[in-house]
């Protein structure tokens, strides 16, 4: 067994959240610069220049990259050889999240679905936990904005629709989203599994860095084809037209029932804020 102190987890998770909301990761920053160089349209170039300037400003101040610091989403790989001393993991994550949103000047965005009363401290976090072999604890965080989440969709396609049906559903979802989810977006696609697993796969896919394909060459080819089709829409940065509607498409696939073909599209805005800690 490997023992990990709950306090160490708390401090690392807190710092990870505060950093993720302020310091844009290198892959996204590089993608902005690449898109800026490739765009011809002045309005597309102007938006991308502003996003680069925004990232520089947030990195050098205490200002969050975006005021929507999201639902706090976590994916945890909990090694079965790990024991946590002095706390329950989900509670440790929740407490660290509350402290980060307070000390990091991050917006508290969670509310009751019907009364719309704000919970006041961004609780509860949304935690997906998986028990895995080994003695490693990996905690991944995503600040998931509401505007892009609202443009996400899931469909239960007929198996006969196959790849053309999947491709059309993804492209249609992004065409309907238009300027709303703050393009250039990152698009997570989950294919297969069940009604609930497909969107989880789509969300999990968004953790993969921009420019890094799925290791399966067949899925990597799908990613390339979907990205080209989405960028052919011409929606462009902030919907003002241009070559860059999405920065990348990430596909995760899972076997599904012989009757089903679930497909989920999880739309991520350009402020793609993810970070991880490993113990």
């Amino acid at each position: 067994m490997k023992s990990i102190n709950a306090r160490d987890i708390h401090d690392s998770v807190r710092d990870m959240i505060m950093d993720a909301c302020r310091i844009l990761s290198d892959d996204v920053y590089i993608a902005f610069n690449k898109a800026h160089a490739e765009e011809d349209s002045p309005s597309a170039k102007e938006v991308l220049a502003q996003l680069i300037e925004n990232a520089d400003l947030a990195r050098n101040t205490q200002l969050a990259l975006c005021q929507d610091t999201g639902s706090a989403v976590f994916f945890v790989d909990y090694g079965e050889g790990v024991r946590i001393e002095g706390g329950n993991l989900e509670q440790v994550i929740a407490d660290a999240m509350v402290e980060a949103y307070d000390k990091g000047f991050l917006r508290k965005s969670m509310c009751h679905p019907l009364t719309r009363k704000n919970t006041g401290d961004n609780t509860p976090p949304i935690i997906h936990s998986h028990v895995v072999p080994g003695d490693t604890l990996r905690i991944r965080f995503m600040a998931k904005g509401g505007g892009s989440e609202n443009m996400s969709r899931v469909a239960m396609l007929k198996p006969a629709q196959g790849w053309p049906g999947i491709r059309d559903f993804v492209v249609r979802t992004m065409a309907e989203a238009g300027p709303n989810p703050c393009p250039p977006t990152v698009v997570g696609v989950g294919i297969g599994g069940t009604f609930d697993l497909a969107p989880t796969l789509a969300k999990k896919a968004l953790f993969r860095p921009i420019g890094k394909h799925n290791p399966d060459p067949e899925i990597a080819r799908m990613e390339t084809e979907l990205l080209a089709a989405i960028n052919d829409l011409g929606i462009g940065p902030m919907g003002l037209g241009g070559k860059t509607t999405s920065l990348d498409v990430k596909v995760e696939m899972h076997p599904c029932h012989i009757a089903s073909l679930p497909v989920a599209v999880n739309v991520q805005c350009h402020s793609s804020r993810t970070k991880e800690v490993v113990f």
Partner: peptide, 22 residues
């Protein structure tokens, strides 16, 4: 249409970009 982030010390307001108008 904005819900700003809390203001860090020395700032009039925190991060304050637009939300989806629809």
């Amino acid at each position: 249409y904005v819900g700003p982030a809390p203001a860090p010390p020395g700032c009039a307001i925190g991060s304050a970009g637009p939300t989806t108008s629809g």
